[in-house]
Design a binder for these strands. Sequence first.
DNA 1: AAGCGTTTGTGAACGCGCGCACAAAGTCGC
DNA 2: GCGACTTTGTGCGCGCGTTCACAAACGCTT
Lengths: 280, 280
Amino acid sequence: MPGLTAVDEDDVSSAPRDGAPTADGADRPPAPGTAVPEAPAVPEATVARLPQYLRALSALAEAGSRTVSSEALAEAAGVGSAKLRKDLSHLGSYGTRGVGYDVEQLHRHIADRLGQAASWRVVIVGVGNLGHALAGYSGFASRGFTVVGLFDDDPAVIGRVVGGLRVRPLEEFGEVVGEPGSAIAVLAVPARHAQAVCDRLVAAGTRSVLNFAPTVLRVPDGVDVRKVDLASELQILAFHAQRRAAAPAHRPSAAGPRGATGAPAGPLLPHALHRVEEVV
Amino acid sequence: MPGLTAVDEDDVSSAPRDGAPTADGADRPPAPGTAVPEAPAVPEATVARLPQYLRALSALAEAGSRTVSSEALAEAAGVGSAKLRKDLSHLGSYGTRGVGYDVEQLHRHIADRLGQAASWRVVIVGVGNLGHALAGYSGFASRGFTVVGLFDDDPAVIGRVVGGLRVRPLEEFGEVVGEPGSAIAVLAVPARHAQAVCDRLVAAGTRSVLNFAPTVLRVPDGVDVRKVDLASELQILAFHAQRRAAAPAHRPSAAGPRGATGAPAGPLLPHALHRVEEVV
DNA sequence: AAGCGTTTGTGAACGCGCGCACAAAGTCGC
DNA sequence: GCGACTTTGTGCGCGCGTTCACAAACGCTT
C-alpha cells in the first residue's frame, strides 16, 4: 500500500449548510415525562455545526489568536455571523461584549460539549475496502477518537494487522466494547449484511452507529444512527449537474449549490503542492 | 495493499439505461413549447431523498413487485408516507389512485431525474488512504458512475495502478475531464491542500465536487460542492452519546436518533454471515 | 352502471431554523 | 469618569419543510 504520511491536521472548516444532512428526520415530539432534567436543548442544526466551529477555533489558536469576533469566526467557518452567535448562545455563550470570544476558552467549551474531553472508543466493523481506509484515518485520533477494535467475518481478513490492530472475528465484539454506549461503532460492511451486523452490535450494547452501508437501519429507541452515503452524494451532485446542463444560461439563484462567495475567480493555479495523497 | 474481494453488489434491478444518452432528454412533462425550460424547482430536501427512494425501488423490483403503495415504499425508505407522496408530487408524480406506483416506471423516472441515465464520469483526486478505497468502491458503478481518472501529486503514488486505472499527475487533469461540468470530482486530499487543488479542478472546468477534506471550500458561483466529513459525524454522535450519559434514565424525545421503529428488540444474532468485508 | 374500499395528490397548519436589526454590555481613549 | 465605538446576545418576521387530514380519482365487485 502506498506509504502515506499520516499527516492530518486541522484546519478550518465549516458546514456548507444543511440542505440535506443525512437521513435524519423525525424528531420526537416533546413531551414525555414530567420533570425534564433540564436539557439545554441544543438544536440539531447547531450541533451539526459545532465540529466546524471547533476546527476553526483550532486553526485560530494555532495561528496565535487570543480572541475572535463572531464575524471572523463565522467567516472561517463559512457561516453567517448571526447564526454563529445564536448557535453559541445555545451553549450558554461566554463571549465578551466589546471584544469577542476567547479562543482557547471557547474551544475548550465546545470540545467539552462534544464529549471530546473523554477519548471516545471507536470500533470499526467490516475491514474491507473502506473499513481498511478508515482504520488508517488519522483524522479520528486528532479529534479525540481512538480506534480500539477492528472486526470482520471473513477468515481471509481476520488476523491481519491493520493500522496496528489485529482484525478480530465478530464473536469477540463483546469483549472490546465496554459499558453500553461507551463506544461508537463504524459500520463498513456490505449493504445486505448491515442490518444483521447492526443488530448484533446493538445487542452488545452499542448506542451510536455511523453507517456507511446504503441501507436504512432499524434500531430500537435510544440508539443513534448517522448515515454516510457516498453514492447518494454523487447522485445529488449529478442531479444538479443535469439540471445545470438543461438550463445552461442562468439560474443563478434558485436551489442548488452552496453559497460561498469568494474564490477570486480565475486565479492561476497555485502550484507548489506535493504529497497530495494522504486523505482528508 | 490488502487483497480484497471485490464483491459488491447491491442493487441491481432494472436496467437504468435506455435510449437517450446524455443531454437531457425531453423529459419534461409540460412545456414543450418555447422558452423557459421551466424548472420544476424540486426542493433540496426532496432531492436528497431521491437516492433512497431509488434504492428502495430497486429492491422492490428485484423482489418482483410490480406496484407499491406510498405507504410500503415509505416504509422501505424509512420516511413518512405523506412526505414521500409530496416528494414524488414534485417530480410530477405518476401514481395511480387506487393502486399505487408502478415500480419500474417510477424507478426509471427518478433515475432520469438523477441523471443516472447517462453514466457520469467521476475523477478521484488524491489516491491516499481514502482515495484508494474510493477507487475500488464498486457501489459507484452500480449507480451509473464510472471512475475515469485517478490523480495525485505524490511521485510515489503516480504510476501505480489502482482499480484498473493508472494514477496520473495532476497536470494531466485537463486531458481527462471533458466538457466543463461533464465530470464529478472527488476530493480526497489533505485538508491543507484541498482549497488549492479545488481551485485547479474548477479552473479545468469542474462544476461538481464531493469534498472529503474537513475544510471550507470557496468556489465561484455555479460550482456545486458537497461535503462528507467523517470526523464531524463521529463528533455529532459523541455529542448525543454524552448527553445520553448525562441524563441516563430517559430522554426518549429530545433530539437524536433517527426515527426507525422496528427492530424486534433483542432478536438472536443472525449468524450465517460470511464475507462481511467488502465495503458498503 | 353504481357503490365501495383503497390510495394518491394536495391544501393548510405547524414548527424549526435563518437572517435582520437593535438594545445591552463592555472596552478604549481622553 | 465619561463618551464613543465595538461586539455580543436576542426578539421578531419570514420561508422552508414536515405533518395532518381530506377530497378526488381509480379499480373492483355486484
